[in-house]
Amino acid sequence: MITHVAFWALAVIAVLAGAAVFIVNSMARASYSLAVSFICVGLQVLLLQQNYVGVVTILMMVMEMAIMAVYMVMFMGMNPALMPMSMVHDKRHALAVSIAVFVLLATGVLLEPWPARRGTPPDDVTAALGEELMGPKMLVMAAVGVVMAVTIVAGVVLAAHRGRYDRFGDDLRRRPARDPQPGGVGR
């Protein structure tokens, strides 16, 4: 009973906080609303007995929202991040599309004859996940590791203040390189 009440309370808060992201009048408040929505979903995942995934979701999203707040201040300045704002386009069509998608998904959810549960959860779900990742699903873990490493490199390359394309041009053929302070012999 307590689980059901907690689930519904978290569900209502998660959806309302998610909607508040696009209703509140400052981007700082929007990022905090999104963090609340993520925390509620993380707690719901915990209610579904997936302790590791739930905790990872909560920790990661809280950190992400903190970084997002820093980015908003960085790009827009402190005042616009905290001051009222409304920057939307084609609001009516976006609302119609999102409502239509919800109705479609909800119809499918309610009309689909879902199969009965197969099997039972392991006693220690987190340990079972770890054994799965280090055993039969090692390829997934390896692929995820490579993707994360590539993401770090791509992020640094994109965010770097001055990279090879800035120095050598879009086709990398500019010589000498355009450096703010030329150096070396003959450069």
Binding site: A14, V15, V21, V41, L95, S98, I99, V101, L105
Partner: peptide
């Protein structure tokens, strides 16, 4: 949640 997010991504 998906639909609310879709609204935000589109608008």
């Amino acid at each position: 949640l998906f639909s609310v997010g879709l609204y935000g991504a589109l608008s």
